[in-house]
Amino acid sequence: MATQTDVRDLHAVGSEEDQAGQAYFDKIIADDSRIEPADWMPEGYRKTLTRQISQHAHSEIIGMQPEANFITRAPSLKRKAILMAKVQDEAGHGLYLYSAAETLGTPREELFDQLLTGKAKYSSIFNYPALTWADMGAIGWLVDGAAIVNQVPLCRASYGPYGRAMVRVCKEESFHQRQGFEILLELANGTEAQKQMAQDAINRFYAPALMMFGPNDDESPNSQQSMRWNIKRFSNDELRQRFVGMIQEQVKVLGLTLPDDQIRFNEETGKWEYGELDWNEFYEVLKGRGPCNAQRMERRREAHENGAWVREAASAYAAKQSQKAQVA
């Protein structure tokens, strides 16, 4: 099947229907317009999107865990309310994204199964622990901040349901980023211990946040195809540079620092530069050896397994109700 897929993508001989579909698809992409669920699309496009959207959905769901870790300990009731609303938003993002992925033909249960069996990945950032209250700030500011830089261009992704889901996700993410920054600002203007807590959180989340954009461009072979399909609009490095430029300005407002003394604006290239990241660590975490990989997966499996009897009950009840309705 894989060869067939590749062949089709390369415009080789297919059925007449496929040829017409491909021509339509190519025109939509050339016009920078939108592909909708019922439209013909190359198998590679469908697979790439299913993988990307479901990984994004998984990231939202796993990403609830580090923050949920502080809901019960939030140090003020207002912060507790905001954090709860935020984690709830993430569950909502997971839902829209699973729904967007389902329009490509794979049901949520199957996508979920891919997550639980470790076949599908989620963003590596969530394999780092949330250790202090300041981490709620750093996650909001840096992790959600990086996600926004990544996701704003996705609002224009060629696949309609994905692009539209991202519009709503981005609006909420931008609120999340501001609340994260506000947490850090409050800490930075607080006691010496609070200020140190904030700096420590930034120190720990800075590099992993930068790695959220993915490997350097020369190490990211799939990016080119995604760019040709108008799914991806900017390269990993372009987005990362843009993000560094943003946060190095914002950190000044906090009166704190980024743990990288090589950040500078290169006048010649017009780009932000930063110190080399430890890509070895990135690949280690990706392979499952991050501090929390095992813990995150265990929690997700546990929730899923503990909930099985509830889901079965809901189905059984629904079946009984529809039977009753038929009899009546």
């Binding site: 769901i61 949920a68 809901i71 709860m84 984690v87 997971g94 699973y98 929730a303 909930g307 889901r311």
Partner: peptide, 9 residues
């Protein structure tokens, strides 16, 4: 939150 039987829950 993060432990319910379904995301909806």
């Amino acid at each position: 939150i993060s432990r319910a039987p379904e995301i909806e829950e």
